[in-house]
Design a protein around this nucleic acid. Structure first.
Lengths: 303, 303
DNA sequence: TTCAAAATTGTCATATAGTGGAATTTTTGA
DNA sequence: TCAAAAATTCCACTATATGACAATTTTGAA
């Protein structure tokens, strides 16, 4: 049994509410007291009523309970992502092993997908990463799962975001389309909406390709247009300035990629200027570096 | 008992997981089946494990359960806010009466605060709004509550945001300071962080005062500086472009308010330009209107 | 400090959450 | 189409969540 009761008592006291007031109309005083002292667990239905009366959402309650830390799911993706960003292959391996263990213990495939995602990220960090746990058609199984799930939530989106880079182009196009369609009902739920947005941005970046292939012919005009329209649909609200700046930049890259070099450079510089104006220096620098990379590459290939 | 079980079954099926797999290590298969058929409620502890295994947060689960609608708390503030924005006094009155009823029934003060907040908003919409339910020292009780609560969560911040406009200046300064300090631990919890940010912006706007008092002497330089520094602290992350634009605008207003008219106009125009560049037209228009209002007022008072 | 009222805890009865395994239904695949 | 296997439900039983009320502790006003 988890010690949620103590957290409840703490919060109740902080708000200056008595057991009687809180219990009234929901459950008996003595039981609430017992729950708060962790002498008993509580039913989900009762807990719902109690939190409602305290004007607390479940997530806020759990956030406090976990000492102001996000829930386990978010923590998982956060720690994987941090390890990946720091190119920490050892930590990634540990995280992978934990998930493999859970998979073998419970037989629930989700733990398997988690392990797979970590292995795929590990492979980018260190070419020697993949071990006996990885089998050739695992990726196939993973994408089968993603196609099969009828509603994509935060989990599926985060999972896909972690694996997208290593999938085939056709697969990415189909899956990203699926992702958008099957997560659409969450569009007013910020956490999930952000994950969809990330998928769409990553897809566009993937389709534009790495800079050292910018001289090759480009064939994804239609698809990029499609994903941009999804993004505009989603982040329609005027308040999503970050998304709008990012989109402006990517439209610039797209222009360059499709031959409109001058127009593209103008757009990218414009996005950089806005970031500088708002003192978002790091992001501005990243954008600038990327632009320089593109320009110097184009110069070299034209010689 | 609430029919959470059906939602669980739906999600489990969508993810292609069997009762056996999900129950393994958590509870018996037969019980999980019973819960899913709403033949039994479930303990909070068990539900936590189940959701963890499904890679779902409580909020996401409840969001699905409520047919992709936000939780009751958010819905409450949302509906109050919509009614206020639409200047719908009748609807506000209904909402108020509901909260009064709950207050009288349970004796829990939170419902009283809700009713008070609605009455205060109602008073702005319609001067005849306040009725026998409102007593002179109620506002006092409300601010006492806000001072007393040791940790401000989403509820307290939303409540304060709804009442701030009608409080005395000294009270606003103290309460906003309290709000910032006592909600600080939530700074990584987006929903609450947004509420803090709103409080701080509203406080700054409040302290700058209505345009038709811009000729009066200004004495809140120190306080505005304090609240701006809180904001910069909170929304430090480079990604909060909206907050940065908004802050730029308010710094401009501050400049004008303290005599630096030229500098202020430059800042505000800059913020407007950025919004226009990003096609956030409505916001740009609002900023522009506000600027025009200020300028024409200053012109008139100087004649 | 004292004492009554309010708030909380303890005790015991009972309703129901939760288990194990047999029975039934559904799915699979030859 | 039909067994065999897998998944789910049913049923009898146990553990524990929950309620009623008495006992105890805390609060706060005099």
């Amino acid at each position: 049994m988890v010690a949620y009761g103590k957290t409840l008592r703490k919060i109740r006291k902080q708000k200056g509410i008595t057991l009687k007031e809180l219990a009234d109309g929901i459950c008996s005083i003595s039981f609430l007291s017992k729950f708060e002292r962790t002498d008993s667990d509580i039913t989900l239905g009762l807990m719902t009523s109690v939190l409602e009366k305290l004007m607390l959402s479940f997530d806020e309650f759990l956030y406090i309970h976990h000492d102001f830390q996000p829930n386990k799911l978010e923590q998982f993706f956060k720690s994987v992502n941090t390890a990946y960003m720091n190119r920490n292959a050892k930590l990634l391996k540990e995280l992978k092993n934990e998930e493999m263990k859970k998979w073998k213990r419970y037989g629930v495939e989700t733990y398997h997908w988690n392990a797979l995602m970590i292995m795929m990220l590990g492979q980018i960090v260190d070419e020697q990463f993949i071990d006996e746990d990885f089998e050739e058609n695992d990726i196939r199984l993973l994408s089968d799962y993603l196609f099969r799930v009828e509603v994509w939530g935060y989990y599926e989106l985060a999972l896909y975001n972690g694996t997208l880079l290593l999938l085939e182009t056709d697969m990415v196009i189909m899956l990203s389309r699926t992702a958008y369609q099957k997560s659409n009902r969450f569009k007013d739920f910020n956490k999930v909406k952000d994950a969809i947005t990330t998928v769409l941005f990553n897809t566009i970046i993937y389709l534009l390709g790495p800079v050292n292939r910018f001289h090759e012919e480009f064939t994804y005009q239609k698809e990029i247009g499609e994903f941009i329209s999804y993004l505009e649909n989603l982040a329609l609200s005027e308040e999503n300035l970050l998304e709008r700046v990012h989109l402006l930049q990517l439209k610039g890259v797209y222009d360059i990629r499709t031959g409109n070099k001058e127009e593209g450079v103008v757009k990218i510089n414009h996005s950089i200027q806005i970031l500088k104006d708002l003192q978002s220096t790091k992001m501005a620098n990243n954008f600038e570096q990327y632009l320089q990379q593109i320009l110097s590459y184009l110069k070299n290939t034209q010689l």
